[in-house]
């Protein structure tokens, strides 16, 4: 169990780095935002993993249940998800405006246009 004790965290780090890789290696702006979403979801998993109590149940009061998982990370992440989609929408709106202004959503083509000005 010692090995599996950190499995959640390692996968979280892997997902985080995958998202990070997408952000820094791909030049397409829509892909970068998907990369940020992957990164974001990995942070959600990190928080929820920390709140898990072995043998506990969901934090809703029920008869005959004494052990609940920690509700605090759930609250933080619940709001973070909805805020996340709102900020993603803002990022995508910026991408749409960049497309209209530059005619492309590839980062290096945008840089090339800026340098030629």
């Amino acid at each position: 169990m010692e090995f599996l004790g950190h499995y959640n965290y390692w996968i979280v780090i892997f997902l985080m780095m995958t998202g990070f890789y997408v952000v820094i290696s791909h030049s397409n702006l829509v892909r970068k935002i998907i990369g940020l979403n992957i990164f974001q979801t990995s942070v959600f998993i990190l928080y929820i993993s920390m709140g898990k109590m072995p043998g506990g149940t969901a934090p809703i009061v029920a008869e005959g249940v004494t052990l609940y998982s920690n509700p605090l990370p759930h609250v933080l992440i619940l709001t973070a998800i909805v805020v996340g989609v709102a900020t993603t929408a803002l990022g995508l709106a910026l991408v749409v405006r960049i497309k209209e202004a530059y005619g492309t959503v590839e980062e290096d083509e945008i840089h090339a246009q800026d340098e030629s000005l």
């Binding site: 979801t41 998993i45 709140g51 149940t57 809703i60 759930h74 619940l78 998800i81 909805v82």
Partner: peptide, 18 residues
């Protein structure tokens, strides 16, 4: 995964939003 980790509210939100 969130359901397995007992975070039913979060799972609910993630399924609808994500």
């Amino acid at each position: 995964l969130f359901v397995v980790l007992d975070a039913v509210d979060v799972a609910f939100t993630e399924a609808v939003v994500g």
